[in-house]
């Protein structure tokens, strides 16, 4: 039996979507929507803005499907689009103060839930406080588990640049976190 990897399955769905099949595209939206939304949420902070960026990302992906050559994973291509959308969104709306709202973690003990919840909120704030050029690689690496190569591809920067920015971002984030623990 032939087992299809997630990537080759994506390629098949992209081909179907490219030939004008919105149902195939919907499968891709459902498969990758969570990732795109999470990245957007951590980059822009506000859930409504994150939804906006996610929506625009997929619409743009649909319109430019022929530009997706399959040299990188479909998810990496989506990351590239969403990071750019978020950057534009933040430039267009500098007045919008970042509002952080995260899904409540599933923890039984309410006291502990409050503690963890506020910890998560504090990390989110610390991430949002990083400059965009370092926030993006940090979110892709630490929160989405991308490899350095995938990040270089998504952000269209060199591998040493990824390592440099990531390193600085980690230092800055740790400094912020150590400040309140």
């Amino acid at each position: 039996m032939l087992t299809m990897s997630a990537e080759s399955d994506d390629a098949r769905l992209v081909a179907a979507a490219r030939s004008g099949n919105p149902d195939a595209f919907e499968t891709l939206v459902r498969r990758h929507g969570g990732k795109v939304y999470r990245v957007a949420l951590r980059l822009v902070g506000d859930p409504t803005d994150a939804e906006d960026a996610t929506q625009d990302t997929f619409v743009q992906a649909w319109r430019h499907l022929e530009r997706f050559r399959g040299d990188s994973a479909f998810s990496t291509w989506l990351y590239r689009i969403v990071v750019n959308r978020c950057l534009r969104l933040l430039r267009d709306r500098p007045s919008t103060a970042p509002l952080v709202e995260l899904p409540a973690p599933a923890i039984a003990d309410p006291q502990r839930a409050v503690e963890v919840g506020s910890q998560l909120e504090a990390v989110s704030r610390a991430v949002l406080a990083l400059p965009f050029e370092r926030r993006a690689p940090l979110v892709l690496r630490e929160l989405e588990g991308c490899t350095y190569e995938e990040i270089a591809d998504a952000l269209e920067i060199s591998l040493p640049a990824v390592k440099g920015r990531l390193h600085r971002a980690r230092r800055e984030l740790l400094t912020a976190l150590r400040g309140w623990t």
């Binding site: 969570g34 995260l102 899904p103 998560l120 989405e144």
Partner: peptide, 15 residues
Amino acid sequence: AWAPVSALAGSEGAL
């Protein structure tokens, strides 16, 4: 100090 970052990574947000 880093633990909350890992915790944030695990707090899945679906679309």
